[in-house]
Amino acid sequence: MGGPTLKASRFGWLAPPLALAALCGLVPHMVGFNQYYILVATRIAIVASVALSWNIIGGLAGQLDLASSAYLGLGGILAAELMIKYGVTPWIGMLAGAAASAGVAFLIGYPLFRFGIREVWYALSTVALVVVLHELAIVLMGPFDYYVPPVEGWYYLRFRTWENLYYVSLVLLAFVIVVNLWVSRSKLGYYLKAIREDETAAEALGVDVRKYKLLALLIYATLVGFAGYLYVVTQRTYSYKTFSAPFSIYIAVIGIVGGLGSVDGILLAAAMLGMAEEYLRATFGGTLPGLHLLVYGLLLVTVGVLRPEGLATVTRRLLRPVRTRFLGGESA
């Protein structure tokens, strides 16, 4: 008899993410400090952080948000501009970026949720947000690429080699994982899952659907806005193109392929897709542009039509024979 009566120690759930973070901390040593691999690993850690932040609105609350690049771009561009124009350290800039994207999320989300905008209309309004910011940025910033200046050190959070940024990204990722685990174990998490299942039924149980959806959106936008500067640094440039619909879709692809609500599935998906994208781009980028996007498309269709729960079920299925052999008996 497991589940309902079994009670883990109060902070036991923190152990796996911390162990994982420690393991990931060894990656630079494993790749012999090869800068390209460390950069790829850094990007994957940042994208995984964004995807796990998205998991709160998309996976737990079930709202298909396609605006992650809007919050990432707002946070990143604000922090970078503050640093370049006013010499403000990105540590403060990232907090400002987080606040700015939370502010925009509130402006968008409050009226939408107030009027019960959901499902397709919610997804479309997040697409619209990215389109508006993309085209607004062309007007305000011009069609140019801006470079993060070659300043170095912890004050600027930019280094000659990538290890330090990688460690910073790992800390961010660990933090986002802890937030995810905490949310899904809290009242908020149960309410978000109930909203995802059936808003009307959740409301009848006393769930203030608007409030909790807005809360989920704000947590997500804050975390993504905070990560923005790290993303800009790994991209080396920023521009109107940072507000990118394909990037936002990529984040949702990771969430869906990994399995909505599943932290380990999303981590796995972020790592696999990240490496696959690097490989496909490096190998076929010149001859077959868009191959990686084609692969995402096929993945979405396959996962959506055949395996609605994503990699989470795949890993469970793969592990099942092992579990049966060593633990005896089939668990549901």
């Binding site: 998309g58 079930g62 949702a252 868009g290 084609l294 995402y296 498309g297 979405l300 959506g304």
Partner: peptide, 26 residues
């Protein structure tokens, strides 16, 4: 996908769109 959650319908058709766009691009 009929009757399934809107999120999946959107995601899958976004995938179909990606396939079409990138086959065209190639």
């Amino acid at each position: 996908l009929l009757g399934r959650e809107p999120l999946m319908q959107i995601a899958v058709t976004v995938g179909v769109g990606y396939v079409l766009q990138n086959v065209a691009l190639m």
